[in-house]
Simulated assay, not measured.
Amino acid sequence: MPTQFYGASSLDGFIATPDHDLGWLLQFGDIEGSSFPAFIRDVGALAMGSHTYEWMLKHAIDAGQPWPYAVPAWVFSSRSLRRIPGADVRLVRGDVRPVHTAMLEAAAGRNVWIVGGGDLAGQFHDAGLLDELIVQIAPVTLGAGTPLLPRRITQPPLRLKSVTPLGGVFAELRYDVQRLPLA
């Protein structure tokens, strides 16, 4: 059961605008032509940062849409956030390691998805808990914003598994996260 970061990025490496908006991505429409439907079927637990959660609250929940995930979700934040009635959302803070252990248990043999943001994915990477990056590169540039993965990862480098064109719009890149051998 891998722990995977799955998300989209602008061509210049940003996942959100400077004000944490994801609206730039919505212009590309339906996710049905993407790898997402197959990906989400294997997810048993997920984690997201507070900006992603707040974006979901504002643009989905407050717009009358239901919480989209049927699996437990851990939201990492250093501030107080409102809860969604009836949704299995667990608000947490601090080190990702003990939370990851709980996520693996809840996932019951299925994958763990790091939804966003890039810094949270970086924290899982720093702790040696991130196994794979799956990123759809969109044909836009944002110029500034929230970086895809605000970490320096050079040794060992990520290992490219595949590049897949999606709908003539996105290029999906899949990378395995390699780890240094134990001394």
Rank of each mutant, 00 (worst) to 15 (best):
M1W: 04
P2I: 04
T3H: 12
T3Q: 07
Q4I: 15
F5H: 03
G7L: 05
A8I: 13
D12Y: 05
D12T: 09
D12G: 06
T17R: 01
P18E: 02
P18N: 00
G23P: 08
W24H: 02
W24K: 03
W24F: 10
F28Q: 01
F28S: 04
G29P: 00
G29R: 04
D30V: 02
I31D: 07
I31W: 15
I31R: 15
E32V: 09
S34K: 00
S35E: 04
F36R: 02
F36K: 10
P37V: 06
A38G: 14
F39H: 00
D42P: 00
D42A: 03
V43S: 07
G44L: 07
G44R: 02
L46G: 13
A47Q: 06
G49Q: 05
S50R: 08
S50G: 11
E54H: 14
E54M: 14
W55I: 00
M56N: 07
M56F: 05
L57W: 05
L57A: 09
K58E: 13
A63R: 15
G64T: 01
P66C: 06
P68I: 00
A70Q: 15
P72V: 05
A73E: 04
V75I: 09
V75K: 09
S78L: 11
S78W: 12
S80D: 14
S80E: 13
R82C: 00
I84K: 02
P85G: 04
G86T: 08
A87C: 03
D88E: 04
D88S: 01
D88C: 03
V89N: 12
R90C: 07
R90E: 14
V92N: 09
R93Q: 11
D95N: 05
D95F: 12
R97G: 02
R97N: 06
V99I: 12
V99F: 03
H100L: 11
A102S: 05
A102P: 00
A102M: 14
M103Q: 09
L104I: 12
A106C: 02
A106T: 02
A106I: 04
R110Y: 07
W113P: 01
V115K: 12
G117S: 09
G117K: 06
A121T: 09
G122W: 06
D126W: 08
D126P: 10
G128N: 04
G128A: 11
L129M: 09
L129G: 02
L129V: 00
L130Q: 06
D131P: 09
L133H: 01
V135M: 11
V135W: 15
Q136E: 13
I137D: 12
A138L: 13
P139D: 01
V140C: 01
V140N: 01
T141I: 13
L142Y: 09
G145P: 07
G145Y: 10
T146Q: 14
L148I: 10
L148K: 08
L148H: 04
R151F: 06
R152K: 13
R152I: 15
T154N: 10
T154Y: 10
L160Y: 11
L160D: 12
S162P: 03
P165I: 03
P165Q: 14
L166V: 15
G168I: 12
A171Q: 15
A171V: 15
R174S: 07
Y175C: 10
D176S: 03
L180Y: 08
L182T: 15
